[in-house]
């Protein structure tokens, strides 16, 4: 592999996409016409709490009415202080996340500083926009982005539409086929002063309700030990919530709801 050196006037700077284009490397995002059913990923949610943001996603991928994958991961670290979650066409979305992660790291290494949270959100917006031709063919990817803004010391959440439109959400957001149901639950339970544990529990409840109403969203699977993925971003950075914490969160939720109903019924 030769050294990627460019004349000063044609240097792509810290822009990974421009670098790949100039180097003639093909990128999966953009173009294409494939008349088949691709696996689909659904329901991711994020909400703000006192110290940052919580992001959660179910594990199911579907292809039409079939379950394509039971343990898919949809919540990823974007970099140290940001998280990205995906809904939509799984393959394209995973490629987008991978490129996004590398782009943020690439910028950081080339420039010697990190992008602002807003800069990262805009970068992702460009990636969604470049996928528009694919989205028109049905291979749409809708990410959800959140992170801890070090300059303002708050958690922030961004949603996107298929054209790359970027919207900052005040408190919470959810996308994917079960997003509406997850959002309703989170909306009902949201308070300005949620603690981290409360926010994690609320995200878990949101996903549980989404899985109840939407066939494409997977619920907890104690048989195989597969639980939705929950991550936290605060001023210490990104971290995944431990699986046993998530499992016990679901147990408590089910016990509480069962008690509220007054026992098991129809």
């Amino acid at each position: 592999m030769a050294l990627p050196l460019f004349p000063v006037t044609e240097d792509p700077g810290p822009n990974l996409m421009a670098l790949l284009e100039k180097s003639g490397t093909t990128v999966a995002i953009g173009g294409g016409d494939h008349p088949f059913t691709a696996p689909h990923a659904t329901t991711v949610a994020a909400l703000r709490y006192r110290g940052g943001v919580v992001m959660a996603g179910d594990r199911r991928a579907t292809a039409g009415n079939l379950i394509a994958h039971r343990a898919m991961e949809k919540v990823f670290p974007a970099d140290r202080y940001a998280a990205v979650a995906i809904s939509g066409t799984a393959g394209t979305a995973m490629e987008m996340v991978k490129l996004f992660q590398v782009q943020l790291e690439h910028y950081e290494k080339v420039e010697g500083t990190t992008l602002s949270l807003e800069g990262k959100a805009n970068q992702l917006s460009q990636m969604v926009r470049s996928n528009l031709p694919m989205a028109m063919q049905g291979f749409i990817v809708i990410p959800l982005f959140c992170g801890f803004d070090l300059a303002r010391q708050v958690g922030r959440i961004f949603t996107y539409d298929g054209t790359g439109g970027r919207y900052e959400e005040a408190d919470y957001a959810a996308t994917g086929s079960g997003g509406r149901d997850a959002r309703s639950t989170i909306k009902a339970g949201f308070r300005e002063d949620l603690s981290e544990d409360e926010a994690v529990d609320l995200a878990i409840a949101g996903l549980y309700d989404a899985a109840e109403e939407d066939s494409a969203t997977g619920g907890p699977d104690p048989l195989r030990g597969i639980y939705p993925i929950v991550a936290v971003v605060d001023n210490g950075g990104f971290r995944y919530v431990a699986e046993d914490v998530i499992a016990s969160g679901f147990e408590r939720l089910i016990a509480r709801r069962s008690a509220e109903r007054g026992g098991v019924g129809r």
């Binding site: 592999m1 030769a2 790291e105």
Partner: peptide, 28 residues
């Protein structure tokens, strides 16, 4: 900067563990 580029492109094309210093040092 050329080294960062080569490494990031190689990691994207193959895998993160395939990026090695020997090949970069050779390119330099």
């Amino acid at each position: 900067v050329a080294g960062v580029r080569q490494a990031d492109m190689k990691g994207l094309a193959y895998s993160r563990e395939d990026v090695d210093a020997r090949s970069l040092a050779n390119a330099y």
